[in-house]
Design a binder for these strands. Structure first.
Lengths: 204, 204
DNA sequence: GTCTATAACGTGATAGAC
DNA sequence: GTCTATCACGTTATAGAC
C-alpha cells in the first residue's frame, strides 16, 4: 500500500534516479534531471540544495534497498541454508530484471565513494551475527558443506546471480542473444544456480 | 622484449590510463592527466587532439587486451575443456590482481558506449567458431556435461572469477577482510573455481 | 616540442520577479 | 512554489611566443 506521491519534490527525485542510474554522477547534468522531471532547473536547487546532496540521497536509498533483501534472507531463522540460497537467487534475479541498472550503478559509483557503504548500512554487523553464518558453520561441521570459508560461499552465490547482469553488454556483444532471450536465460538461472551451488559446495 | 618508451606521448598515454581507470571518462579532468604525466596541459591536445580521442584509444586497447586472453584460451586446440577452465580462471585472476581497476573500468565505461565493444573486437565471431564450443557440444553429447547452454557455462566461469574483484568494495565493507587477505582468497580461487565448475556442470 | 595565456563553452547554483 | 535571467566558475581546447 504505497502512497503515490506526485509532488514536485518526488518528481525530481524519480527523475534524478533515472538519470543517475543511467549515466552516473559525473556524467549527469542537473539540466538532464530537470528535463526528465519536466520542471525548471531552479527547482532542483530549491528542493535539494545541490546536485551532490540529491545524488547522495538516491545512492543511499538504492544501496539500502538492494542490501536489505540480502540481510533479511540471511537472518531468517525459519529457513535452511539451501532455502536461503534459493531465496537470495530468486529475489535478486527478479529485482534486477525489474531494475537492471542498479548493480552497475552501485559498482560504478562506489568506486568514487568506497566508504559510503560502510557508513550507512550495517552490512558487516548483520552478516557477522547472521543465522546464515551459524548454519554454514554447522554444515561444515557435519560435513555436508566442504568449503569452510563462508565468504567464498557468499561470493559464489552473488557472483553467479549478479554478474551476468553486469556483464550483459559483453554477453550480448559476444553472442546472438537478444534482450528477450537474455531475460529468459536469467529466469532459468533461478532454478539452476541453487542446484549448481549445492553441487559445487559439496566437493573439496 | 618490450621497448620501454618514455617519450612524452607515451608518458601522457600512461598517465591517462591511470586516471581513466580510477575515475572514468566523465570524472577525469584533462588537467589531472597532465599533472599525472608531469607535462603541460597543452601537450595533451598536441599529441591526442582531444580528451575523447585519448580515452577511446585507452578503452579499445584495454578491452582488446582483456579479451585477447579469453579468445586465445577458448580457441586452443591442444587443451581439454577442463584445462581451458583452469587457464581462463588462472590467467584472469593473475591479470586482475595486477591491474585491479580494469573490470570495473570496462563495465562502467561500457555503460555509456555499449557498441564500442562489438565494433572493435571480434568476440562474437571468435566464440561462435571456437574449439571451446565444439568441445562443450561433444561433452553434452557424451553426458559428462549436463548444462546444454554454453553461455551459462561461460557466464559461470567468468562470474565466479571476475565478480569478487568488481564487488571488492562491498566485500571489504561487509567483513573483516583486509586487502592482503582478499588477495589470498582470490589466489585460493584459482584452484577452487575449476573444481566447483566441474562439480556444478556435472549435475542437472 | 613545449610552454603561457586566453578564448569559448558548459555547468551548478542563485537572485529576483511573479 | 515556480519561473526567467544571469552569475561565477571550471573545463576543454587553441593561439602564439619561444
Amino acid at each position: 500500500m504505497k502512497k503515490i506521491d506526485t509532488s514536485t519534490e518526488e518528481k525530481i527525485k524519480e527523475a534524478a534516479r533515472i538519470v543517475f542510474y543511467k549515466k552516473g554522477f559525473a556524467a549527469t547534468r542537473t539540466r538532464d534531471i530537470a528535463e526528465e522531471a519536466g520542471i525548471n532547473l531552479a527547482l532542483l536547487n530549491y528542493y535539494f540544495r545541490s546536485k551532490a546532496k540529491l545524488f547522495e540521497m538516491i545512492m543511499i536509498e538504492t544501496m539500502a534497498g538492494f542490501f536489505q533483501n540480502l540481510m533479511m534472507v540471511l537472518n531468517d531463522k525459519n529457513t535452511s541454508i539451501d532455502e536461503k540460497v534459493m531465496e537470495v537467487v530468486g529475489k535478486y534475479i527478479d529485482l534486477i530484471i525489474k531494475e537492471p541498472e542498479i548493480p552497475t550503478f552501485i559498482i560504478s559509483e562506489l568506486r568514487n565513494n568506497p566508504n559510503l557503504l560502510l557508513q550507512k548500512i550495517p552490512l558487516k554487523e548483520v552478516i557477522e551475527t547472521s543465522e546464515f553464518l551459524k548454519q554454514h558453520q554447522e554444515a561444515v561441521k557435519n560435513g555436508s558443506m566442504k568449503e569452510p570459508n563462508p565468504l567464498h560461499f557468499l561470493i559464489n552465490i552473488l557472483g553467479l546471480t549478479v554478474f551476468p547482469f553486469i556483464a550483459k553488454p559483453m554477453l550480448l556483444g559476444s553472442s546472438k542473444l537478444n534482450d528477450k532471450e537474455f531475460e529468459k536465460m536469467m529466469l532459468e538461472r533461478k532454478k539452476l544456480i541453487p542446484m549448481w551451488i549445492k553441487a559445487a559446495m559439496s566437493v573439496g
